[in-house]
């Protein structure tokens, strides 16, 4: 019983970090309709900015965190401007964007291999990881609770941004139809930049928590595959879907690790993906897409 509660909290915590990554990825998908494989790169950029800021400017997580989120946001915008904008302005073949994003993902990863080296780095202990007892029922770490709270905070902020602001409204309109939104006078390029900034920003939050959990290394971005899986389980392009999918995935992973075997957790993740798609090909919250004949 104690393990169950503990693994549930750990699962929700891990799932909420996936959610931060998956939501950004899903947001980009909803606007440009392609899988941005460079999304993992944004997370790595965020992680390294945080690491080096902490090392050089002293151990202030607020400064480092801020620099990391904004830096990753701008890197995402830059990635879009350099690699995707020229393509999307020329064709509407989303496959080309997808392949370019695979290229950018390799580029970003290897910039860090060259600049920072391939070794694993532990973030300085700026986020508390001491054990916390919950009503005497279970023991978990402060880190898990913090990452859960941070995720809730940022996802809530995103929701407010999308509902309350002018740009949020424009983004929701563009998710229905980007071209029409453009015809209605929305500055499409600026809108896409904002979306990428938000995606990079949220990925960096995930990146910081993941580098505390697993240490930081150039290939850390590979973990976004799980966030992609979560987004697909939830339904590509659906933000609530991305969050629910992420929580399911986090729980499945931690419960497998707790009760079956730690080695099988990834296998469970991928089986979950395939089963969901077989039962519900458009994902849990996805729109049923049928082409007009």
């Amino acid at each position: 019983m104690e393990t169950l509660l503990q693994q549930t909290i750990n699962g929700l915590s891990l799932g909420s970090v996936y959610a931060l990554i998956a939501v950004g990825y899903s947001l980009v998908y909803s606007i440009l309709l392609f899988s941005n494989f460079a999304h993992g790169g944004f997370l790595v950029i965020g992680g390294y900015i945080c690491y080096f800021t902490l090392k050089s400017l002293g151990f202030n997580i607020w400064i480092a965190g801020f620099a990391s989120l904004v830096g990753a946001g701008f890197s995402a915008v830059l990635t879009e401007r350099l690699a995707y904008k020229p393509i999307r302005e020329r064709t509407n073949v989303t496959l080309y964007l997808l392949i370019a994003s695979m290229g950018m993902s390799i580029v970003i990863e290897n910039i860090f291999v060259i600049v920072a080296g391939g070794r694993f780095r532990a973030l300085p202990p700026v986020i508390p990881t001491h054990p916390v007892h919950i009503f005497g029922l279970a023991t978990t770490s402060a880190f898990d609770i913090l990452s859960l709270l941070a995720a809730v905070f940022f996802l809530g902020a995103l929701q407010l941004f999308l509902i309350k602001t002018k740009w949020g409204l424009a983004i929701r309109a563009a998710a229905y139809d980007l071209r029409t939104a453009g015809l209605m006078g929305v500055n499409v390029n600026l809108l896409i930049s904002i979306v990428f900034f938000v995606a990079g920003f949220l990925a960096a939050v995930g990146g910081i928590f993941l580098s505390v959990r697993y240490t930081l290394y150039p290939q850390l971005g590979m973990i976004t595959i799980k966030a992609f899986v979560a987004a697909v389980i939830g339904g590509l392009g659906s933000l609530p879907g991305a969050v629910v999918g992420s929580l399911i995935l986090g729980l499945a992973e931690m419960l497998t690790a707790g009760f079956i075997s730690s080695q099988l957790r990834d296998l469970v993740v991928f089986s979950l993906l395939i089963i969901t798609l077989l039962v519900r090909p458009q994902g849990l919250f996805g729109k049923n897409i049928s082409e007009k004949v």
């Binding site: 992609f228 991928f270 395939i274 798609l277 077989l278 090909p281």
Partner: peptide, 24 residues
């Protein structure tokens, strides 16, 4: 069963399939 999926859905599923083979 999986080729019923179209486009990006199959692409992501195929990552899952490939990784599952490797993990096994």
């Amino acid at each position: 069963p999986t080729l019923k999926l179209m486009g990006d859905y199959y692409a992501i599923a195929s990552i899952g399939l490939g990784e599952a083979i490797r993990l096994i």
